[in-house]
């Protein structure tokens, strides 16, 4: 047992003469792990389909999201059901507008909200958390106290307050979402930074006299990236839920624009009138996309953060 096997010895002898094997980076490993996870890959496909639907779905229909089909008005419950002939694939809503076009438009807004929220959280949260964690001491305490303070406030109320004061608009919605989305990320980034900042390569950089800001940007942040990506993907669905909640209350997006929350609210309003498609289609899109996003996030976590399993 002490002696290596003959085959190994031969392999070692040949090793010098063979071409160097392509090294596998950590990212390659992560990719391999990710593609082994069937649920995550399937989710990726579903999400791609949803994105394609949101981007190009409008091309398939002659109806726009605000156009009223006057033939339908007054008899939506009898005539408005989904049908290929009159090209209302998902039926029409209670005022005779094409539900397919409205779903395309709502999907667009909802996805956008999720992505913008995640982006803000990645940029602001990572910067905030990495700075607080790396500098430490009093700065860290003050910065994290601010995060704690903001987290302890029921944000939905403050955001609705903001929306009431400064007129409801998509921009205001994005600002409001931006205000809260980075808080969790800042905590996560700080925690990771604390463990990274004592590593040798950071010490080496400090010894060479590299500026603090450069160390954070060049050495800390790239090493946070795996964890940050995982939490950003998990943040997308919660941002979508957040926006849908506000829109469900009628305080979010404004007519004729719509989002999943607003569509679900409209469908729920009409459910007593025997028009199940109005609730069904938006709900299905919402649930399927959220499922896919959660599974994608789980897959990414398993791939990028293997110690966490």
């Amino acid at each position: 047992m002490v002696f290596p096997r003959r085959a190994t010895v031969e392999a070692l002898e040949q090793a010098g003469t063979m071409e160097a094997v392509q090294g596998r980076s950590l990212w390659d490993d992560a990719r391999a792990r990710f593609f082994r996870n069937k649920a995550a890959v399937a989710s990726l496909v579903v999400l791609a389909a949803v994105v394609i639907f949101a981007s190009f779905g409008q091309l398939l229909t002659p109806w726009s999201n605000e156009e009223i089909d006057w033939n339908m008005l007054g008899s939506v419950a009898q005539l408005g059901a989904p049908s290929i002939e009159n090209r209302h694939y998902f039926g029409v809503d209670e005022t005779g507008r094409d539900l397919y076009a409205r779903t395309v438009q709502g999907t667009r807004i909802s996805l956008m909200v999720g992505i913008v929220g995640a982006l803000i959280s990645v940029i602001v949260g990572t910067a905030w958390g990495a700075t607080a964690g790396y500098i430490g001491g009093r700065t860290d305490q003050v910065m994290m106290r601010i995060v704690d303070l903001m987290m302890s406030i029921p944000y939905m109320f403050v955001l609705i307050l903001l929306l009431v004061v400064f007129e409801r608009s998509i921009l205001m919605l994005f600002i409001g979402i931006g205000l809260i989305s980075w808080l969790d990320m800042a905590r996560i980034a700080r925690g990771q930074t604390l463990s990274i900042k004592n590593k040798e390569f950071v010490e080496a950089a400090q010894a060479m006299g590299v500026k603090t800001s450069t160390i954070i940007i060049r050495h800390i942040v790239p090493n946070l990236l795996g964890v940050v990506i995982v939490y950003a993907t998990l943040l997308v669905p919660s941002m979508i839920i957040f926006e849908s909640f506000i829109s469900f209350l009628g305080l979010g997006v404004q007519e004729p624009s719509t989002s999943w929350g607003a569509l679900i609210a409209a469908g729920a309003d009409q459910m007593r009138n025997g028009t199940p498609w109005m609730l069904g289609f938006p709900l299905a899109f919402f649930v399927v996309t959220l499922f896919a996003l959660f599974f994608l996030g789980d897959g990414l976590r398993d791939a990028l953060d293997p110690k966490d399993r």
Partner: peptide, 22 residues
């Protein structure tokens, strides 16, 4: 618990009313 993740209150409420009331 996985299924309920995608059922926030504003999704649950209409579904419940459709099933248990209607």
């Amino acid at each position: 618990s996985v299924g309920a993740q995608v059922l926030p209150n504003f999704v649950m409420a209409p579904i419940l009313v459709v099933v248990f009331t209607l």
